[in-house]
Nucleic acid binder design. Structure first.
Lengths: 232, 232
DNA sequence: GAGTGGTCTAGACCACAAT
DNA sequence: TTGTGGTCTAGACCACTCC
């Protein structure tokens, strides 16, 4: 009967009226006192429902002014799923494999933000033995000294890092580039073919751990982002 | 002194210990009862702090088992900011303008999911009078009949829609493409130059409203996504 | 069975902003 | 001034699930 908590029922009722267009952006929602009376519950229960809606950006609450339905964002944000390559490949029902193309250890440049020494790796990721992603990666040996002894032919760098150095902060940059000669050769494309580049930087406790540039053939790959203000 | 609510101070304290690595993934956090004693407050206050952390994915809570620090996601998601072009341009301190290059009204194709008739628009967006984005857009005249009479030379289609048909659901697709001849001409690029394509579909209450394909010069544009499990 | 989180109550005081 | 949300209390009962 009563599985759904009351605060979620209240939030859901309001959400439905917003989604259906019955309550348009700018519409002033009943006050907590009114909703408390309507549902016959304590004010804190209504308050929790409204706080949840507010946290999800569906409504805007201001003291004295009351609660109004939010306007859809001009600068909208959407959750984009940043794929782990291996799980991405396997999720498509293909066999994942990888080849380590290059590995050197060298001093880090100051602008790399990765400490004193880095290991520099080039990896080709394959799906059913066909090239899928060309990856260049730097790993900070200050942050992850164990990386110097790791066998990156057995485990790709991304997987190794996930297991050994979980990050606490990440930044991704998505851009379009033409494949340079080396990348084009690795992926079997024409020089200059449009590719999606995903750059990823991660930190652990403020210290730079790794930088990676992953290049996907443009024709074969999409990032999809969904945003639904009414569905979290 | 006491501006910060107690529940946020509690959440912040815990967050800091997770971010610093003091409490690693899997670590079992003190129970609500223990935290209640530690902070000398009511249990609901602690509960709210922990619920917030849980909603943000920093911790996982299970009855009887207690609350543990969450493992970082394998398949991570990040919030990517999807720009409104005008605000993007103005945010860079440049002057925004636009030119309507084409406009026709025609029957919709079934696979477009936009009702019976659509208006098809081609718009060039400029920053300081230099081409910045080439946009192709379809607007459903079933969902937005007023669009047929709108003056899209005065207001760009995106801005008009935001004002007249706020969406409730959106999907974005990010990919890399080579500029076709028309796009290249519009943006002043060589044919086939790598570009970032942002496709956007929006719905209002389940009904398709618009589809847009916005093409950014690859060299001039990045989408940035940040993810920080410790900072929301 | 007992420890844990999930929800809810019926109050209270305070901060803020519109009037 | 006063209406509104923001926070907090000190309890309570319940639902899980591990032991």
């Amino acid at each position: 009967m009563d599985q759904e908590p009351l605060h979620r029922r209240i939030a859901g009722d309001i959400e439905r009226r917003i989604a259906s267009g019955e309550w348009r952006p700018g519409f002033r929602i009943p006050t907590e006192a009114e909703l408390t009376a309507e549902y016959g519950c304590a004010r804190m229960t209504v308050s929790r429902a409204m706080s949840d809606l507010s946290a999800r950006g569906l409504v805007v609450r201001r003291r004295r002014a009351g609660t109004v339905v939010a306007h859809p964002p001009v600068h909208s944000s959407a959750l984009v799923s940043i794929p782990g390559i291996q799980s991405e490949v396997e999720g498509r029902g293909l066999a994942y494999s990888h080849r380590l193309l290059g590995r050197i250890v060298r001093p880090a440049r100051a602008d790399e933000g990765l400490g004193e020494r880095v290991i520099e790796l080039e990896t080709l990721h394959l799906a059913d033995d066909l090239p899928f992603v060309f990856e260049r990666r730097l790993i900070s040996l200050s942050a992850a000294p164990e990386a110097e002894a790791a066998d990156f032919t057995a485990q790709p760098p991304g997987g190794w890092l996930l297991a050994h150095m979980p990050w606490t902060e990440a930044e991704h940059r998505i851009s379009a580039v033409g494949a340079d000669h080396e990348t084009a050769a690795g992926l079997g494309l024409a020089d200059g073919a449009p590719c999606l580049r995903l750059e990823r930087r991660t930190w652990r406790d403020g210290q730079g751990v790794t930088w990676a540039s992953q290049i996907f053939p443009g024709a074969a790959y999409d990032l999809v982002a969904r945003f639904s203000p009414t569905k979290g």
